[in-house]
């Protein structure tokens, strides 16, 4: 945590880059700077932002969650299925939350107690969730629709208060809660200590293993909320999202914002900066009507640039060498 200066370094740089990109788009593209477009911009990254907030907690603790999007899609699809089967909405919502938390706890337990690497545990868990939920709970369906009886849920995705879409409020709420947890509670301090140096954290009496369970449960919970918004927005859940790059986009936002993969550094401010840059880029590229290939080149270059910056600001040192890179 002595590197707080460096962390703000990247977050600040990204925020500045975002402003520059925004200004360029605002000058070049008609209607980009309009308030309505700003609302659309934030609205369109709210799901990604929520996922990235959960991911940030895990990454700060020097972990990684590659099963977050699988959790998101599988749990929300199951909830819609339950509602379609006649279960009251709130029961289905609770059941979904419980399933998400269980998945997170299993991830955490395998990483903390069995001491398997997070990368492989969560990668495998992603496959497992996809297959098991699809065959076991969805009867083989890839596409599940919001049933007629649960149309009220659409408010979460399509509603607006004072002209601001509900997903934006949910993103703000999740970000605030995570910020409070990380910066104002002892658990938050413990998470930083865990990521900074797990062994030292343990030696100083921090319950590192139960803490790991909490971290992955929070990441899964973020997936749960993001899944709810997604299901409510389009009125359906399409399990194909699991095969998309969304999970990596969430990691991209986290790293881009300046939360180092070597753990212990960064905060929710960084997530916001990363989300803002990605949102601005995506929105601007859609308005410019760039082709898919060009968009993918831009995204790839931005990620490489961010990792380069991360490397320059947090060069490989003795501590990283000893712990090994992710």
């Amino acid at each position: 945590m002595t590197l707080k200066g460096a962390q703000f370094g990247q977050g600040g740089i990204v925020a500045a880059v975002t402003l520059v990109v925004f200004a360029v788009f605002a000058v070049l593209l008609d209607g980009f700077a309009a308030l309505a477009n700003a609302v659309v911009l934030v609205r369109s990254v709210s799901v990604l932002g929520i996922l990235a907030t959960g991911m940030a907690i895990v990454v700060i603790a020097r972990g990684l969650d590659l099963s977050q999007v699988a959790t998101m899609a599988a749990v929300s699809a199951w909830m819609l299925k339950l509602m379609g089967g006649g279960l009251p909405i709130w029961v289905a919502l609770l059941a979904g939350l419980a399933l998400a938390l269980v998945i997170g706890l299993i991830n955490g337990a395998l990483i903390a107690y069995v001491e398997m690497p997070a990368l492989f545990v969560t990668l495998a868990m992603g496959f497992l969730i996809f297959g098991a939920v699809r065959t076991g709970l969805l009867g083989g369906d890839m596409l599940v629709y919001l049933p007629e009886s649960a149309q009220g849920l659409q408010v979460l995705g399509q509603g607006a208060v004072l002209g601001i879409p509900v997903p934006v409020f949910l993103f703000a709420g999740v970000a605030l809660a995570a910020h409070f947890l990380l910066s104002a509670t002892s658990i938050g301090r413990f998470i930083y200590a865990h990521g900074d140096n797990s062994e030292t954290a343990r030696l100083t009496g921090i319950p590192v293993r139960p803490l790991t369970l909490l971290e992955y449960a929070l990441s899964a919970a973020a997936g749960y909320i993001a899944g709810l918004i997604m299901a409510a927005s389009s009125g359906s859940v399409d399990l194909r999202i699991i095969n998309s790059t969304l999970n990596f986009d969430a990691i991209l936002v986290v790293v881009l914002g300046g939360i180092s993969l070597s753990g212990g550094r960064g905060g929710i401010g960084n997530v916001l900066a990363g989300t803002a840059l990605i949102g601005t880029l995506l929105n601007g590229m859609v308005i410019m009507n760039l082709s898919a290939e060009v968009q993918s080149i831009v995204k790839g270059l931005v990620l490489l640039g961010a990792i380069l910056l991360d490397n320059a600001l947090h060069p490989t040192d003795e501590e990283v060498m000893r712990q090994g890179d992710i």
Partner: peptide
């Protein structure tokens, strides 16, 4: 490209509509 994904189609269309 919406890549067969309703959410992607929604996001693209929302951007286009403000524009």
């Amino acid at each position: 490209p919406g890549y067969w994904d309703a959410n992607k189609a929604r996001e693209i269309t929302a951007s286009v509509l403000t524009q």
